[in-house]
Amino acid sequence: MGSRIVSFELCGREVEVLVSPMATLQSVLRSQLGYTGTKEGCRQGGCGSCTVLVDGEPMMSCLLPVEDVEGRRVTTIEGIAPVAGLAPIQQAFIEKNAFQCGYCTPGMVVLTKTLLDHHPSPSRDEIIDALGGNVCRCTGYAPIIEAIEAAAAGATTDAGRDAGDWPDPSGER
């Protein structure tokens, strides 16, 4: 099997990338496209630090062959914030001190985005359920849960922004 070109929508922008067989979305994002916000904790589905949204649903990008996102819509942490400033979810994480080393944070924020898209005012149990696959070694989870509750109470998600506002970390715009 040789390399092939895969195209998909990444944070509102069409990308085409030449990939080797079975390359994961995670490695293509980080090594080929310069989207290093998606982290690499375990590369085996055990930590959630690599969580991205595919067509709005959370997926662990370390387990996902990039060919599987052909023609689909991928949102990484780079697509959560507006070009200037922060998304309300990110602001809530700062205000609640919901990170220390920050390694779990991109996955947690992306997960929160989809949680709030589906359940604008989740119960504490729904939040805990949603966090089940994402590990944090530093914070003890309490500040993360508080941040998600605060973001939900602010009743603001970043829906409705047009694609032109997505930042482009590769600088190609």
Binding site: Q44, C47, I127, I128, L131, G132
Partner: peptide, 17 residues
């Protein structure tokens, strides 16, 4: 043997701190 088998409490086990 790996990250997935190393047992740690998650948010569901969180006590009041």
């Amino acid at each position: 043997k790996d990250f997935s088998e190393y047992v740690m409490p998650g948010p569901a086990e969180l006590p009041e701190i």
